[in-house]
Amino acid sequence: MTTAPTTVAAPAVRVRGLNKTFTTGSLLARKRLHVLRDIDLTIDAGEIVALVGESGSGKSTLARCLARLEHPESGSVEVFGEDVLRTQRRGATRRYRSDVQMIFQDPFGSLNPTHRVESVLERSLRLHGGPGQSASELRSRLVELVRTVDLDPAVLSAFPHELSGGQRQRIAIARVLAVEPKVILADEPTSMLDVSVRIGILNLLAKLRDERGIAILYVTHDLASARYLADRTIVMNAGRMVEGGPSLELLDDPRHPYTRLLVSAVPDPERSEPFDAGARAELRKEVETWTSSPQQVPTAVGTAGDVGTADGPTDSEHWVLMPQENR
């Protein structure tokens, strides 16, 4: 994919040519597993991009590379134009640590059970704001912080075990907000929560995007939630990004056989046609043909529904990785 020349500021996140392999197996039967292949991705400030795919697709590994919890073999990760994988400067590293924050799946494991909520949050505020904050200043910032995540200030004196899963995840988000991040990486942030409070967490992420202009990478296996929350959605399969675009456009008109397979498997009470094992098998065969093709090219899906325009697609339009021979 090529990005159209532009004069506006650098995107919040720009990933180019990222590759990552894991080595598995014993010493003698060593296998190399290509978990990320040629990943290109941008996220603008004030934008939510969803990364969807099944387990093993590489979506979490990509998020972990961005959080610098994994180190890719090749490629670059720029945050506001600065290459964060190459930099040796301590200042840049420190800035990266507060600019880019991660929210994890498990709100039960990520909060210290022996500390009250206020001391958890206070610590983040002090580390970020530096010394010289008065007690009353701190207090008002704490109250503001919990209000931002739609909780009552009374939770400040609670211990994590006294809170529900949803409340805990909100505290985890408040802690992240204390350092005023510009990018949030959210890896399946609702999958361990009770279903009725999940949507509230998604709405909170949308609010952070709209009110604070935070760029958010939302990693999920739940296509319907990506459709609900994300401005753009990118589908991953076996380490590759196979299709991307504005969420509604992409999920209402999926082009890659793998995306079509995923979308057709999402439970939909509105759907009338029954499960067709034959059609499913055809689709699987098509996935195999497409993904094993030696030459796969990102191709724009035109507004008229046609594919295969001369230029490569831009990040913001609907594109699909298709075999050269199909174009």
Partner: peptide
């Protein structure tokens, strides 16, 4: 959230 139809704001519990 549904996988088809218009995108409307949901509230849950």
């Amino acid at each position: 959230p549904p996988i088809s139809g218009p995108r409307v704001k949901l509230t849950g519990l």
